[in-house]
Simulated assay, not measured.
Amino acid sequence: MTTSFLLIVQIILVVILVIAVLLQKSSSIGLGAYSGSNESVFGAKGPASFLAKMTFLIGFLFVANTITLGYMYSSAKEESVVDNMVESTNVVAPTATTTPMAPTPAVK
């Protein structure tokens, strides 16, 4: 249950992080041109410092959540995929009581 909650939080963090990166000012205008006049809301410097701080915070939360999810998934699964493959490749040889298939007649 906790892993599914953290997975949902991970998806939300990804969407917010992408939006925060796209709203930042760059050499080409990007999506910041569609946000209107943000200078009155965020102060005289504009949204640059606010968005940079938010992007750093969201990025840090994303990395922490990723590490937590990785730890939880690795501790929940005690055997690896390779262990499962080794067990499934132990094929039993046919016994002597089995009859071989009769050859098929040649078609003319």
Rank of each mutant, 00 (worst) to 15 (best):
S28K: 05
V81S: 12
I58N: 06
S40T: 12
S4M: 13
T89S: 15
P94N: 09
T89M: 12
L57N: 02
S74K: 13
V82Q: 12
L13K: 07
A102H: 00
S26E: 08
S26H: 13
N84L: 15
E78Y: 01
I29A: 14
L23M: 14
A76V: 01
L13Y: 01
V18D: 09
S27N: 09
L23S: 05
I8P: 04
N84A: 15
A93L: 11
S28F: 01
M54S: 02
M1N: 14
V15E: 09
A76G: 11
E39K: 14
L13A: 07
S74D: 10
V92K: 13
A48N: 01
V9K: 06
L13S: 03
A44E: 10
V63G: 01
M101N: 05
V107K: 11
E39P: 09
A96Q: 04
I16W: 04
N38V: 06
Q10F: 02
A33V: 07
N65E: 00
M72W: 06
A106P: 10
A64I: 00
P103E: 10
K77Y: 08
T97W: 04
M1E: 14
E39Y: 10
G30P: 07
T98K: 09
I12H: 05
L17I: 06
S37C: 09
D83S: 12
G30H: 04
V82C: 04
A44R: 11
Y71L: 15
T3A: 12
S27F: 05
L57S: 04
V81H: 08
S35V: 02
P47M: 00
T66K: 12
S40P: 05
V82A: 12
K77E: 11
S37M: 03
G30E: 05
A52S: 15
A20R: 06
